[in-house]
Each structure stands twice: as structure tokens, then as C-alpha cells.
């Protein structure tokens, strides 16, 4: 099985492994409407699943800037936004929200000192955008660019300065956020309430399908045959405890004639997840249902603890090996 496909299957796990945090019901107002999609996760410390995972993530030996920031200023919500691009790589932004103000002189200085490790020689260029100090720099070994800015209790970081500016625009209210879209609101009502992790891909203007196709050409594998016929797609996952996840992924059809293809995709995706995880001795149950223009893949996975431990310890490669 091709690696990109497997990586797609475990996207939600990756998002968690990529340090994403949020509160149930939050509407990710920071990601502007021209993004391809976003995911948000809450850390509700009273939720046993999320609490276990946060502990496992913090306890894992791998270090990164966000983990260092979390230790100083516990985060309660993180949103990851993915933006379209003409090139092969996809610019992304992470907006991490803390319960504390991050924009004070001391906090800013501390965050800047942590962030110095992200770029070559710790060198950032500082510019001003919408009243925020936007720091941009180049990663070591030509690994692309990196930037961040702080706004109140939020830290926005990412791989593309333009995407960061769009986040600032959405935060300032000059650009509508993705969460204002009708499809987002519609699909949000169709996933289980209180989901710990929610992701949404918008496709009214084929932004998701075009982005996916570009990747598919590179991978020489089509992940979703029906991507062009989708209006949007949303997933909601609940981390019941460290070992069990329940959730559903809802596909909304733009073209009702494509329901069969969408159902085929949902079935295939469910089957591929089952096959990936049955090999790792994880129990997986799934069900695909169709209701009007909506196809829903509901699932339950058990026995995930070893997988998450590997993920937090060894990183994404542990899932792809």
C-alpha cells in the first residue's frame, strides 16, 4: 500500500501528534475562507481520552517548540489550517490558543527565545501586519520558510507568510473565516456533538479536489474518486480514553448523481483503515450510511494505546513504516 494513502488514513492522528488543541464547539475563526480545510482539537482536561493523550504527548521524548510553549502556557485549543498552493507542498498554519495572555513583554520574549530553534541561526525578520509583529525566517537545511505572530492569547505559526497574513485578516474580521461557510455549519450539525477533534474540507469551488488531485498525481494514487463531486467533508472524533476512538466522517454531495461513488469512497476508506489497523491488532468497526445528499462513515477503534505511544515517541514515521 502506498505511503501517502496510509498517511491520509491517519491524518487525524497526525493532527493530534502535531500538537493541536481546542474546546468543543469552537468555530476556528482564525482560518480564512480561502483555505482548503482545517482541523481543530480541544484539550478538555476533564476528558479522560484527551487528558491521556496530552500526557502521553508531553511525556514523549521528542521535543518541539509548541510542547515547550505548552509547558509554560497551557493551551486549550489549536487549529491547523491548510492553504492551497501552486507548488507541491501545502502551506499550513497552526493557531494555538492559551488560557493566558501571550502578548505581554515577558511572554513574547520567552516565546521568541523558544522559536529561535525553528530557523537557521535563530534569525528572524520582523515586520508589522495589522498591528502584529510578524516574524519570518528560513529553516535550516533549506527546509522551507517559517513564521509566527502573537495576538492576545493566541500564537499563530506556519510555513508561509501569506497564509499567516490571512490568519491575521480573519482574526481582524476583514476576511470571512471558513467556519462562516454554510457547508461548515450544515456539516457541523451532522457530526457527534462534543467531538474532541473536528476537521473540515470545503469544496464548493473545487479547492479541496484540486489540491488533492495535485497530490494524487504525485502519489500516482487517487484517494477519493468522488472528490470533484463533494460540496464538503467533515469528520468528528471523540477520544473516549487513551485506547478508544469513536467518530464519523460525513461527505456532502454537490452532485447527487455521485452518491454511489461517494459511498464507494467511504466504504473503501473504512476498509483501508480496517486493513491498516487490523494488521496492528487494533479492533475496528465501521458502518456506512446514506441519507439524501450525505454519506456517513461511522467507526469505532479500540486498542490504540501502543499506536499513540509510537506516534508520540517516534513521530509520524512510526505509522508509515
Amino acid at each position: 500500500m502506498k505511503r501517502p494513502f496510509i498517511s491520509f488514513l491517519v491524518i487525524s492522528s497526525l493532527l493530534l501528534g502535531s500538537r493541536i488543541i481546542a474546546t468543543p464547539g469552537s468555530a476556528a475563526p482564525s482560518v480564512s475562507q480561502d483555505a482548503v480545510g482545517f482541523a481543530e482539537i480541544s484539550i478538555n482536561k476533564s476528558d479522560p481520552g484527551v487528558a491521556w493523550m496530552t500526557g502521553a504527548w508531553l511525556g514523549a521524548p521528542r521535543s518541539n517548540s509548541l510542547k515547550s510553549i505548552y509547558r509554560k502556557y497551557p493551551l486549550n485549543r489549536t487549529v491547523v489550517g491548510i492553504y492551497p498552493s501552486a507548488g507541491a507542498s501545502l502551506p499550513f498554519v497552526v493557531v494555538a490558543q492559551s488560557g493566558k495572555n501571550l502578548a505581554g513583554e515577558v511572554e513574547k520574549k520567552e516565546i521568541l527565545s523558544i522559536m529561535r530553534h525553528e530557523v537557521a541561526q535563530g534569525q528572524y525578520n520582523r515586520s508589522n501586519y495589522r498591528g502584529y509583529d510578524l516574524y519570518t525566517g528560513t529553516r535550516s537545511n533549506n527546509k522551507g520558510s517559517f513564521g509566527f505572530f502573537i495576538k492576545g492569547n493566541e500564537l499563530a505559526l506556519g510555513t508561509d507568510a501569506n497564509a499567516l497574513r490571512k490568519v491575521a485578516d480573519a482574526s481582524a474580521g476583514t476576511v470571512a473565516p471558513m467556519s462562516a461557510q454554510a457547508d461548515y455549519r450544515d456539516l457541523r450539525s451532522r457530526i457527534p456533538a462534543g467531538s474532541d477533534l473536528v476537521f473540515f474540507f470545503a469544496n464548493q469551488q473545487n479547492q479541496f479536489a484540486n489540491t488533492l488531485r495535485k497530490q494524487e498525481r504525485k502519489w500516482k494514487l487517487s484517494l477519493l474518486l468522488s472528490s470533484g463531486d463533494l460540496a464538503g467533508m467533515m469528520g468528528g472524533f471523540n477520544f473516549v480514553d487513551g485506547d478508544k476512538i469513536t467518530g464519523s466522517i460525513v461527505f456532502k454531495a454537490k452532485n447527487p448523481k455521485a452518491i454511489r461513488d461517494i459511498q464507494d469512497d467511504a466504504n473503501f476508506m473504512g476498509e483501508a483503515i480496517r486493513r491498516k489497523f487490523s494488521h496492528a491488532h487494533i479492533t475496528y468497526k465501521k458502518q456506512v450510511t446514506v441519507q439524501g445528499n450525505y454519506v456517513t462513515l461511522s467507526f469505532e477503534m479500540k486498542g490504540l494505546k501502543p499506536l499513540f505511544k509510537d506516534l508520540f515517541t517516534e513521530g509520524v514515521s512510526s505509522l508509515l513504516k
Binding site: R217, K220, S222, L223, L225, N267, E271, A272
Partner: peptide, 18 residues
Amino acid sequence: VSDVDFFYGVLRRTLRPQ
């Protein structure tokens, strides 16, 4: 049957980008 179905799914998705 399920294995052949899955094989069909993989084949369809591998051929589409070509």
C-alpha cells in the same frame, strides 16, 4: 470476496491518475 473488492478499489484508484 472482500479481498477482491478491496483489490478492485485499489486498482480503480491507482488507474485514475493515469
